[in-house]
Each structure stands twice: as structure tokens, then as C-alpha cells.
Design a protein around this nucleic acid. Structure first.
Ligand SMILES: [Mn+2]
Ligand SMILES: [Mn+2]
Ligand SMILES: [Mn+2]
Ligand SMILES: [Mn+2]
Lengths: 232, 232
DNA sequence: GTCGTGGATTAGACGTGTCTAATGAATAAG
DNA sequence: CTTATTCATTAGACACGTCTAATCCACGAC
């Protein structure tokens, strides 16, 4: 099936929204995600439904079919492999890679995908900590991470993934030394505004808007997998 | 100026045809090069003329303006850098790179171009021996090479460039051990058909259709630049 | 239950790149 | 010169992705 860039972007958007909420996705949510108007989305969604890539209930919402999900996973795989490749092989900063990958994801061949994956040793996360779908395009596991802003003073957590779309935000995080793998101690959570954390001994405060986009997992005490859930 | 992939491809086509013949380019020649119908070409050429990228004389032909040539050179630079990059860094065969580059050339950023060029050490030819325009996009020098088929028995020549668009042909050349830099002794030129050559001691015959697409330069006796024209 | 309102869809339009069919221009052959 | 042939252009159509304006539907407030 020959799909346009636009169609791929809509499928990716629906995929993302669907994974976030678990429920059918609204026209307006898609419109916001792809930065198009609602009627534009309606007509594209009709098109995708005719091709069997989404299931649609009028006035209700839209869901990916298994085929649609596979396409979305392919695009996401391209995107995240490219991000990894650009940072590791071409010396891009993780701040800039998203935009470049967002275009290239639609234009690389299967061969390119394979060679890049091989060159990188089949990585399973991209530079922002987002999981890279495998070549088989099986659905990804559910996300176990929690927003940093949901944690309490005293918690010790490890940064798992950060949002990759906002360059200013990434630059901020980069500067703060926050990236996947960073160990963070939550020092204080003020009711409304700042989250104060300690990183590498330094204390600093993060606006809640930022803390909400940093996804973390519990730091198991000093890397000893004592009470780990299945990790194999 | 925001140009579509299609416009870039037409400009590249006009550029190629113009460098080959030196004269204004006909609608039908462009049509053949881009694999579109003549009316399609006419309308695109009108569009390009309105944008000041080509100079057009109705029923006569079309020529690039300096701005149009600059765009063409940019696309050609992308194409050839990508080909070099794919072969050198991603282990592509020179047989396959053309197609991949033909798409990607329209979708890489200036940053990508720069990083690739840097990574490769600013190469000046691509894997097929075609010159890569510099970052300044100055027009390329004229081509000094001659078709192998124009040579006579007894000539010793060095392969300079081969045609990159025909994968079957490239596979053939690859197999024959013919690539840029290969030293070739012309053993015999039959009036119509074969050109017999010696490469690395082995004699083999090439169909004239192939010999015509292999561009060579004289092998200066054993790499001693005695009677060289200006080479600095 | 009715109704108002917000979100979704339909209607209708436009720009782009492409096509086929019809027409027009340049030129080579007589 | 006139004409036949070839090549280019114009005319008109279509698919696609997008928009704005008009209409429609669902659902929460009453
Ligand atoms: Mn995209
Ligand atoms: Mn990412
Ligand atoms: Mn191209
Ligand atoms: Mn080439």
C-alpha cells in the first residue's frame, strides 16, 4: 500500500494519542496533534477508514486497526532509529534530532532502516528514552513510567524518557543535566509551582510544566535488582 | 523560496541536459528525463519561469537562470554527498545508492548536509566518479572526460566516471572490475559492436552501448605528471 | 424531556501536479 | 512557396490535501 507522508503522520498522531489515553481518539485531538483544521482531519480519517487503517464511529472517535497500528509502528520505528542514528553517528544534539527525523521518517527505504539498525546494534530506545519498535513491528509494551511531578519529597527516581518535540524544553533539560538515566532525588514538591530536585549533588527547581513531561521509574536501591518485577 | 520535490527534480533534469549539450533544453528532452508527459513539463516549466528559475523561449527551449542553476547544484550536491555517504558509512553498494539518494536529496536539512560533508572530509567525487558541487554552489568545471568508446586500440586510459542510473549496467561494470580509477588498455575496437579491453591483465569485451557510458581520461604514463595541463 | 452549545461533519473552494485530447507553431521536404 | 510532420502548447479534467463557512448531532444543564 502506497501511503502519503500526510497519511503516515495522521496514523502516527492517532497512535500516540491512543497510547496516551487508551480510548478512541477525537477529531479535535488529532487536529491539534497534526496542526490541521478539524474538517481536514475528518476527510483524511474517512480516507484512512476506507483503506482499512482506522475504525471509525462517526461523531464518536477513531481507533487504529491492526494494519493501521503496524503502519504507525513502522513510522515510529523510522523516527526513533533516525534520532538515534543522528545523535550517535552524525553528532547531532538530542535537542535537534526530532525535526530532522520527522521529515526523513517518510523517505527512507527498508534497506536504509535495516542498515541503520544494524549499525547501531538494534537499539531499543531513542535519545529521549522512547522505545524503538522492533523490526517485526509488534506492539510496544505498556509504559510503566510516571511523571516526575507525581512523586513526593524523598523519592529517588531514574529519568526514563523526556518529551522530544519541544526544543526549548530539551535545551533546558540538557542544561539541567536531565536525560534518560539521570538519577534524581525529589527534595520538595510545592503545591502549585516548583519541584525541587537534587541531581549529582546540585539542587535545582523545575517548573511543574516541565516536571510533568519528565517520565521516571523508581531507582531500585543502588542498582541491586532485589525485588525486581520480571526484567528478563 | 520553498520548492517542491517535483520542482527540484525538473531543475536537476534541466541542469543535466544543459550540461550535456550546452544548448537550450527542449520540452521533450525534459519529459523523457523526468518521466512525465510533455504537457506536464510545459506547465511546470511555466511555473519555474514565473519564479525566475528558468528562462524560457516558447517553442524554443529553456535554460536555467543563475538562481535556477544554484538550486540545481544544491540538489546535485545533496544527491552525490548522499551517495558517497551511503556507500562509505552505511555499506551500500554503489549499485544501489542512486535510488535512495534520489528521494533523500529533497528531504535533508542544511545541517544534515554539512555534517555528512564533514564526516566524509568534503569529498569531491561521488562513488560513480561524478563531481560533488562545493558548499558554495559554484558551477562545476567542464567535463574533460571522453567516452571509452571514442578511443582506439593501444590507448591506455583511467576510468573517471560511469553512469549511475542504470542498476543493471552498474552491476555489470562492478563485475567487470570497472570503476573510477580503474586503468584500462584498449585492445581492439570493432567497427560496430564490441570494445575489447585489458583490465588487470584480463581481456574482456564490452558492448558499445556500455563503452559509451564509461567516461575516461588519458592515463599519464605511470602517474608522472610531466606534461600535465594545470592541475593545481 | 427539551434545549443550547461545542464538537464533528458536509459543502464548496483552491493550489499543485499530473494526465489525455485538441490545437498551434516551426521546420523540413517537396 | 506550400505542405506534412513533428513537437509544443492550451484546454479541460482529476486526485489529493488543505481551507472556510454552513450545517448537523450528542449530551449536559435545566
Ligand atoms: Mn512526519
Ligand atoms: Mn525521540
Ligand atoms: Mn529526486
Ligand atoms: Mn552518482
Amino acid at each position: 500500500m502506497m501511503l502519503s507522508d500526510a497519511m503516515e503522520d495522521y496514523l502516527k498522531a492517532i497512535y500516540r494519542l491512543q497510547s496516551e489515553t487508551g480510548t478512541p481518539v477525537s477529531t479535535s485531538a488529532i487536529a491539534e496533534e497534526v496542526e490541521k483544521t478539524a474538517p481536514t482531519v475528518t476527510s483524511m480519517v474517512q480516507n484512512l477508514a476506507e483503506r482499512g487503517l482506522v475504525e471509525r464511529e462517526k461523531y464518536k472517535g477513531v481507533e487504529l486497526t491492526p494494519e493501521g497500528e503496524t503502519v504507525a509502528l513502522e513510522v515510529v520505528r523510522h523516527h526513533r532509529l533516525l534520532e538515534a542514528y543522528l545523535t550517535e553517528q552524525l553528532d547531532y544534539s538530542w535537542v535537534d534530532v526530532h525535526e530532522e527525523a520527522d521529515t526523513l521518517e517518510h523517505h527512507i527505504s527498508e534497506e536504509f532502516e535495516q542498515r541503520v539498525a544494524e549499525m547501531l546494534g538494534d537499539p531499543d530506545v531513542d535519545p529521549h528514552g522512547d522505545p524503538i519498535p522492533g523490526a517485526d513491528l509488534r506492539p510496544l509494551d505498556g509504559d510503566e513510567t510516571t511523571p516526575l511531578s507525581d512523586h513526593d519529597a524523598g523519592d529517588r527516581v531514574v529519568v526514563s524518557r523526556v518529551r522530544d518535540r519541544d526544543e526549548a524544553e530539551l535545551a533546558y533539560l540538557d542544561d539541567a543535566g536531565i536525560r534518560p538515566g539521570t538519577v534524581v532525588d525529589v527534595v520538595n514538591v510545592a503545591p502549585f509551582g516548583m519541584v525541587t530536585v537534587r541531581i549529582d549533588g546540585d539542587e535545582q527547581s523545575l517548573p511543574e510544566a516541565v516536571a510533568r513531561t519528565i517520565r521516571v521509574r523508581p531507582a531500585r536501591a543502588d542498582r541491586t535488582p532485589t525485588e525486581g518485577v520480571s526484567d528478563a
